[in-house]
Design a protein around this nucleic acid. Structure first.
Lengths: 201, 201, 201, 201
DNA sequence: TATGAATGAGGGTTCATTCAT
DNA sequence: GATGAATGAACCCTCATTCAT
């Protein structure tokens, strides 16, 4: 009689709901999207949402964690022999066009929220910490290989690179009809020139 | 007895209200800040706001326009003899610390909103168009002076620089305790190396 | 220094305002029309309205009185030799088409309001009393001339005729494209047959 | 366990709400009655109204439809052998006194509204179309039986009779202390004389 | 006389959340 | 697990009215 809750199925549904939430938040904003909308998007009843999340706040936080985790998955497991700059920008090089960048716009929602919500800021910083560790590792390897100016502080450069990469979704919003490939190439050029060891005299 | 309509006072009050709105939006978000809160911040009664703005939407739009106009005022009227990179980053060089960057966080609200609100996107793009014109002018002058790689397309570089500069407010949110001066110097270094004409062999 | 208020001009402006109010009330309803709207229609400032009327309620009441007075002016001063039925329906016979009936729709507003507002009901009844007196006079004259069935109670018939006449503005609302002249003729026929003394056998 | 959606209960509650709304609208007017008042009258919370109706406008429209449908129910299913005039006025003959006529005052609200709101006018006209069909049927039968002047156009007479019947609720508003039975009898006499075939000479 | 800035109560509506089923 | 009825606080906005000028 006592039907055990299948924890796997529960977790699976949870992730499904977070993705639905992500779509709604993109479409209508963190505040603008109602729990009712999210439920409709996910195909469940309004009350049932609370079997998975105790409040809307929790949904936002879980969505942020889930999204950021997935996003920085791109930085891990890169081919050993790749060019350092390309490695550092792998998140962008995995995308094919502005439409791939689209869902990253949620970052602006999170950044805006992080400015006033300590829990979201903590989530953002925790995630950034991970990514910085990975990037600074890559930078150090680059320095060892002589591809990166040894005078640069890897920790600080890593932080700046994250900001620069996360700025990419601004471009299609600010300028209509921008060429994706050209923008990506220019960004890569900028990073390469920045990191390159100064020419010896 | 002198019955002036006094449209100057009206305009003055309008700007005052927009600044109050800006503070509220920073504190609670574009949706989170209620018209009542804005009125309290500005010291007027809830109904009176609608003497100056026909809806909350209009307040957001006017605030965006007003804020962006003020922000890109920094790019105009720069000393003729300054270094090109510093000129291009003048917006950041006018700031003294992260606390000065604080109010720029409103950009994330606007970027998030621009993703789903065509009117806000139009305002953002119109403003960007202005700034791009100024920056590309500076870049062309730099190319003429031999300070900027002539192979770079000024238009495209300008767009990217705006994104990079606007990414700055991300840093204190993502990493706690970052040094402002060091970050600014590193950003300047990156831009300088990017723009510099390749060394001749 | 003490400029005397010209009472005539004051009264004139008052009537002008009442007509503006009538137009607004027709367009938007007694509650739907705001004092601001009325002021705009009349071309005065919102505060100035209160020099003429102490409240919106008073405007409605004054408008009702003014309108009803004007409306039943049609019943007075009719040619002595006219047919009794035509005399009784003179209000309708002065109109040329449904567009002339249009402004009578305000009656429905007043009837609705009279159902719950004793002051409006009193105004309506006072006006009806006048009209009834006139109509019952006409009826008695008709009975004397042998044109009206002497068995009918003039007082009661008068009341019913007012209701029937006031029902006319319903027709264009209820049925689209009704012919005005035909409707008027039919109404006249009904009243004539009703009033006619029964044929002697 | 049996999870019925139970649309019947939903519909039942809807009708209950419409009746509560009707009472409120009578008491305070279409605009004057607030959704909060309606909710209180119906014994539900302010927000819950919107489970059943998407806006106050919809409530007014649904109430109008519901009310008019119920009202003209009186015209259907009349005894075959009844007098034609009584049949045509059956709506009034089902009522026992002015207090029964009371709730018909909502018609004035609707007529006022119909003058400026096309949706309400459409509802009114659709309802009138039904009633006219029924009445003109009755009239034709009356003509066949020789009880109704064959020279009269049934369609046009039907429209006028509706207006005359709907004018009845004006009487108690316009004249205090009117006798219900006497008024009803006089109205019936008027209709009978109107419809009667002219006496042959 | 005349203006329009200013008030604050209240209107329609939304929404996160709870709970009986 | 799953539903959707139900709540009540809060939101944006309107409006009759007042008052300094």
């Amino acid at each position: 009689m006592a039907r055990k809750v299948d924890p796997e199925k529960h977790e699976e549904k949870r992730l499904e709901l977070l993705e639905a939430a992500h779509r709604c938040f993109l479409r209508e904003g963190l505040r603008g999207a109602s729990t009712a909308t999210i439920c409709k998007e996910a195909g469940i009843s309004p009350g049932h949402l609370y079997h998975y999340f105790s409040s809307k706040e929790v949904i936002v936080e879980a969505m942020a964690e889930d999204y950021l985790r997935r996003l920085h998955g791109y930085f891990a497991d890169q081919p050993e022999d790749a060019d350092t700059s390309a490695l550092l920008l792998s998140e962008i090089w995995t995308m094919q066009g502005w439409s791939d960048v689209e869902h990253c716009r949620i970052l602006f929602e999170l950044l805006a929220e992080a400015g006033r919500n300590p829990r979201i800021r903590a989530i953002l910083q925790e995630n950034t910490r991970h990514v910085r560790a990975i990037l600074s590792q890559t930078l150090k390897a680059g320095q060892a290989k002589g591809e990166v100016d040894p005078a640069l502080d890897p920790e600080q450069v890593a932080a700046m690179l994250i900001a620069v990469v996360d700025a990419a979704p601004m471009l299609p919003l600010m300028v209509d009809g921008l060429d994706f490939a050209a923008s990506r190439d220019m960004l890569t050029l900028m990073v390469r020139r920045f990191l390159a060891p100064p020419a010896k005299e």
